[in-house]
Design a protein around this nucleic acid. Structure first.
Length: 110
DNA sequence: ATTTTGACGACGT
DNA sequence: GACGTCGCCAAAA
């Protein structure tokens, strides 16, 4: 909708489409956007997600290992973990144990 | 305009 | 299989 000012807005739209109780990886989003190698840009976009008008479930985005790499950006140290657990996602030692079960891919039903 | 960065990923050792 | 390095690419300083 409206004009996409850049790569960031594109990322936000995809992240907001992540279903409840599901997670995805930076690379998956980047690949969906056509820039497979720009997984870092996705994370960077998340850095600005806080000042976005919409609620960006950035806690549902983890790296390809299912590791909560960006948990430090949520203010607290275990905020991200608790958010994921609140959605039925099992997290242990900053890592999603059932990552394979809750993994979600953009533009795919599930 | 150039340089630095950065919540990653894949490959090499 | 753990650790190290390179590569990608776009935005902020």
């Amino acid at each position: 909708m409206d004009d996409k000012q850049g790569f960031f807005q594109r990322v936000y739209e995809v992240v907001m489409q992540i279903p409840y109780g599901r997670v995805t990886s930076y690379g998956a989003i980047a690949e969906y956007l056509g820039s497979k190698g720009s997984a870092r840009m996705v994370g960077w976009a998340m850095n600005g997600s806080h000042h976005q008008p919409d609620n960006i479930p950035a806690h549902r985005v983890v790296n390809r290992n299912g590791l909560l790499t960006g948990k430090f950006h949520f203010g607290g140290k275990d905020v991200m973990k608790q958010l994921l657990e609140s959605e039925g996602i099992y997290v242990e030692d900053n890592r999603i144990t059932n990552f394979n079960e809750v993994f979600w891919h953009p533009q795919e039903p599930g």
